[in-house]
Amino acid sequence: MSNSQNLIPQCPAALAAALRVVPLAPLSLSLTVFSRKIAKNHPDLFQRLGEHSRTAFVLDPTDLPIVLCLDPNDGMPKVKLTRGRGTGAARISGPLAALIGLVHGAFDGDALFFSRDLVIEGDTGAALALRNAIDDAELDLSHEAAALSGPFARPVQRLIALAERQTGLCLTRPEDVAIW
């Protein structure tokens, strides 16, 4: 059992159950729009991928019945959710909380790898490039989602904050601790 397991919350069973039945095409479309918004706001993220800017990734939240196939597509990303294993040159697997925590800088990728909470398969160089690019981008998915929601930005942020409190998932970027 990994040492960090007690620090990484499990995804709520209700979400996993819902994802077994809901149609994935609309979700995939929404996530593609969302990822393109992020690409527009953070062009450096895709530049940092370098030679891997067209590599297909499979992000596999191991506590959910779906995987997320991400094609960076040179800054015009496409996202597809699927219930199979998905296809891609590089696969990054781990609990949803760990994957989202990585995006928000709450966890260190190498530490999750040492503790076996994160597994990398396939093109290791591509996986490393994606991890480094995301770490540098300092994304806050809740802010990105709110920015996409127009007049509903504040209710969306409140909803995300509520979901964060209820699930323990790191859905927003923690504040950096400034000591000067």
Partner: peptide, 15 residues
């Protein structure tokens, strides 16, 4: 090669 999360934690500790 480590993340900013690692850097922040280790630096704070050693400082």
């Amino acid at each position: 090669q480590r993340s900013k999360s690692y850097v922040a934690q280790v630096v704070r500790n050693f400082r």
